[in-house]
Design a protein around this nucleic acid. Structure first.
Lengths: 150, 150
DNA sequence: TTGCGTGCAAAGGTTTTGCATGGCA
DNA sequence: TGCCATGCAAAACCTTTGCACGCAA
């Protein structure tokens, strides 16, 4: 028999990630956050699952400032060549900024500087609107943070 | 007595990095590359030295796609708020793309999307001119060799 | 029943830390 | 002579791999 099996773990992880589409998790954080909701998943399974999502193009991975692998679920929507990925250094959320400037920038860098940007792999770091305003919250237990220096 | 000491290792590493300003080294790569020139430096020392350069703002660190810490020496020149950092996924070199679009982009993201980008922490990933031609190559030691201008 | 999925334990690889020794000022 | 720097070894981490067992189809 061929094909993938539908398991409790996969179902739960998918459900959880879909409900936190903005957040970027390390495998450890994902497992821990789910545990807090009473769902246990092995660390190894979390690693393997997140990697498989990337292979299926339903999540993306990037390395945060501390060198950890963070994954964001996006359900395969994305036409991610056409927009920026910006991540807030404070709250750790990742946003897709869908605007014409992404394409313009890519073209400009290629035409004028000879560099071909891969927007899917590129992440701009900064601070989101909410975090600029507020004392900012989040980071209760360190979940989904990707701050740090570069 | 207070202050830093000037040592053989620091002198040699500084000299070496200054001569390879475009390239991004892991501490391991730096030590290995210098060994190839007959200068031995302990791995621990390379780690500590590169980190200290970052603290002094004469180098910058980023995490490559494999999660390794790479460092690029820039001698403290940089006004790095005003330009992009683009890194070639193939050869690992980092280029500064100094152009008006960097500022425009930052302004646009802030004005239209409420996101304040920190250009110093942001890295665009793609492929440089030389590597597109097939010229660039990463040696088995991981040392970068693709010294094109951007 | 078949074979993919899971998770523990161990291995691999990178980075940090402890500590005795060496070298600069 | 005082400290700081160095580098080995070990610890601390994150991630991957091996393997026996469990479970979906």
């Amino acid at each position: 028999m061929r094909g993938e099996y539908q398991t409790r773990q996969k179902r739960e992880m998918t459900r959880f990630l879909a409900g936190h589409a903005m957040q970027c998790f390390t495998p450890e954080e994902l497992a821990r956050a789910m545990e807090a909701e009473g769902v246990r998943v092995g660390r190894t399974t979390a690693y393997r699952f997140l990697e498989s999502l990337c292979r299926q193009q339903t999540a993306r991975r990037y390395q945060d400032a501390r060198g950890l692998s963070r994954y964001q679920y996006h359900g395969g929507d994305a036409d991610c060549d056409r927009h920026f990925h910006v991540v807030c250094a404070r709250c750790g959320n990742m946003f897709h900024v869908d605007c014409a400037m992404a394409g313009q920038l890519a073209e400009h860098l290629y035409a004028e500087h000879g560099f071909r940007v891969d927007a899917r792999k590129s992440v701009l770091v900064g601070m989101c609107r909410d975090c600029q305003k507020g004392g900012g919250e989040r980071g209760d237990d360190g979940t989904s943070r990707c701050d740090g220096d570069v």
